[in-house]
Design a protein around this nucleic acid. Structure first.
Lengths: 141, 141
DNA sequence: GTATCTGCAAAACATTTGCAATTCT
DNA sequence: AGAATTGCAAATGTTTTGCAGATAC
């Protein structure tokens, strides 16, 4: 289900019971285009250039709607900084403490043995790492 | 290294280059006694009963010092809610969406296969799940 | 007596809320 | 017109900051 290719974004929103308003399409477009795990503020700053009347409240409204409809997942790595990911498959993240980039990591969750987890009903799985990315490692050599 | 048994808390702090002030000992004592992954506010509310002059700023000061000295790790599961854990071994957490309890999960991280992670310098590993805990599952039957 | 610890008041920031204005059909 | 969407201004809640007062060695 890759909406950038197989269908237009409006149809993807409709499929998930979201009316495809201009701004909702713009926000989803941003998420799918940059895949950079942005904060609400990052999305706002980019879109407000072309849409000067845009309000940050609207960005929050739209992101919360997307979360509710489960077409976006929240990434909480730093306190006081929610980031958003339109890739809703289970996967890991790596945040570089030097450049701040958040990388995606494919993870085979089935290999993870967690003792006692079978007693719980798991709705969400989150795995992330922090450290220094290969690009920043190379620079400091 | 279990300071509640093998040594008194003051010595544990000293070992980590922290002067064992009365309040620092009280905060570490709380973390080791309850192991409940508290927020700064929870610690404050408990300690202020016996220490009426206590300030929340001081709790933050102390927790940030502990983080810096790496004798406490932060748990960030919900945005706007940092929680603290004096167990600094790598382990997982499960947060129940019904009762709010955060459970510890022993995790053998070596079983987790993450493609491409070897290119990064990993300083921290975080694994957590959300869902419904066995106690709440049972209640709703 | 000097350094460090503690704590107040205010600031900083991200996010939410209430409600009014706008837009869409 | 009526319902949904957008957006302003203010509130909320957590954490930080600057600085002053208290405490410890």
């Amino acid at each position: 289900m890759d909406p950038t290719r197989s269908m237009i974004i409006g149809d993807y929103l409709k499929e998930n019971n979201i009316k495809p308003s201009y701004l909702r399409i713009k926000v989803m477009e941003y998420l799918l285009k940059y895949k950079n795990h942005p904060s609400a503020d990052q999305i706002y700053k980019k879109l407000v250039v072309d849409i000067p009347t845009l309000s940050k409240t609207t960005i929050y409204n739209i992101l919360n709607l997307f979360l509710e409809k489960k077409i976006v997942q929240p990434i909480v790595i730093e306190e006081n900084e929610t980031r958003y990911d339109a890739d809703i498959r289970i996967h890991g993240h790596f945040k570089c403490e030097v450049c701040g980039t958040i990388y995606d990591l494919p993870i085979d969750i089935s290999t993870l043995k967690v003792e006692g987890l079978d007693k719980f009903q798991v709705n969400e799985s989150h795995i992330y790492f922090k450290g220094i990315c290969y690009k920043c490692l190379q620079k400091n050599k």
